[in-house]
Amino acid sequence: MNVFRLAGDMTHLLSIIVLLLKINATRSCRGISLKTQELYAVVFVCRYLDLFTNFISLYNTVMKIIFLVSTFTIIYWMRFHKVIRVTYDREQDTFRYQFLVLPCLVLALLLNNEFTAMEVLWTFSIYLEAVAILPQLVLLQRTNNIDNLTGNYVFLLGSYRALYILNWVYRFMTEKHYRQYLVWISGIVQTIIYIDFFYYYIKSWRNNEKLSLPA
């Protein structure tokens, strides 16, 4: 494992810790999109099916379990926790799942490395992850008052895939048979989706102002 990959994984892990902390400490999930969290749950379940079939490393297994458990915990809190669920911006979080899920499913059926159930679901998870942040970004645009932790959460989540791109470049140069065009294109799309957010996040940080996204 190279330094970019590790930095990417740690950024991803940190984003989830920030989100868990925010919700748990403030007893509020204001500004957080349940749709995005549920899409991530689908992404992790589809991608990590190999937990049952293929052991890669202890690190790999532990991280996968952390991502699954933390995402389902957040969904449970937002849906069922008696204090937290009333803070969910239900009326604002209106993005439709099917607009993201269906195209990704069709694309995974058409464009994959191998036409098997496991491989198609894995590819589907790669495509879906690329766009799963969209409901969250739409919700942030509608939220006038974005708190710091929510801003940091989205920033860390966006940074993680950008670091993965560096990891892919590194692996491409150092590993003889590392060719993952579908993943690379998806990762680039995923990072591009954040560029607007990154711009306003860095601007607000430099000017020491509260983050807000123009509608």
């Binding site: 990959r5 994984d9 991803h12 190999d50 293929n54 890669i56 490393s57 790999n60 991280m63 996968k64 991502f67 490395n113 894995w122 993965y164 990891n167 692996r171 590993e175 003889k176 048979h177 590392y178 060719r179 993952q180 993943v183």
Partner: peptide, 10 residues
Amino acid sequence: EEESSGHDEL
């Protein structure tokens, strides 16, 4: 040697 599947990533 086979092509790396990338499935060792998260």
